[in-house]
Computed example of a mutant assay.
Amino acid sequence: MIKTDKEEQRRGRAGNSVSDDSHQGGDCALVQPEDFDPRAQALALEAAALMGSEVAGINVIQHWTSGQWFILDANVNPAIAGGAFVEQKVAAYRSYLRDRIRQAAARPAQVHPFHF
């Protein structure tokens, strides 16, 4: 997960990605999922599930007074090869794909007979 500087988020820089705007001067840090607010994680996972995607870019922002999380946008094609922490994002995606391939290989083959 990539977390941006809260001050940058409060400024609401129009047209910029809040999740990864380091290429435009925003500060961001790579955080482990267990160190990120579980409410934000649950919201992001729900958004991805609603889109039918296991891999997605979900940009969330926390209201500065109430602490409530909101979805800014959701993308089924996340910026894995761009922005900050490219090596870490590519490694995580590679690990995800390897796990999915192993899961598929472990399932028995399904034979569908042809009907003429």
Rank of each mutant, 00 (worst) to 15 (best):
L43H: 02
A49K: 09
A42M: 07
N75F: 14
A40I: 03
A40F: 05
Q68S: 02
I61L: 12
V76E: 11
E46H: 10
V60M: 11
W64F: 04
Q62A: 01
L43D: 00
F70R: 05
V55Q: 08
I61F: 08
I58N: 04
A48Q: 10
A42P: 03
A48H: 07
S53L: 14
V60P: 01
G57S: 09
T65N: 14
V60K: 02
D73K: 13
V76Q: 13
L50M: 13
A79C: 15
G67Q: 04
E46V: 01
A48V: 04
E54A: 11
A47N: 01
G52L: 10
F70Y: 12
E54P: 02
V55L: 11
A48P: 05
I71G: 06
W64Q: 11
V60D: 04
L72Y: 14
I80D: 03
G82H: 15
I58C: 02
A56M: 11
N77T: 09
Q41N: 02
V55E: 12
A49V: 09
A48R: 12
S53F: 13
L43N: 01
A44Q: 05
S53A: 15
A44G: 02
W64C: 12
I61M: 14
A81Y: 11
Q62L: 03
A40T: 06
G67V: 07
H63G: 02
E54M: 13
W69P: 02
W69M: 00
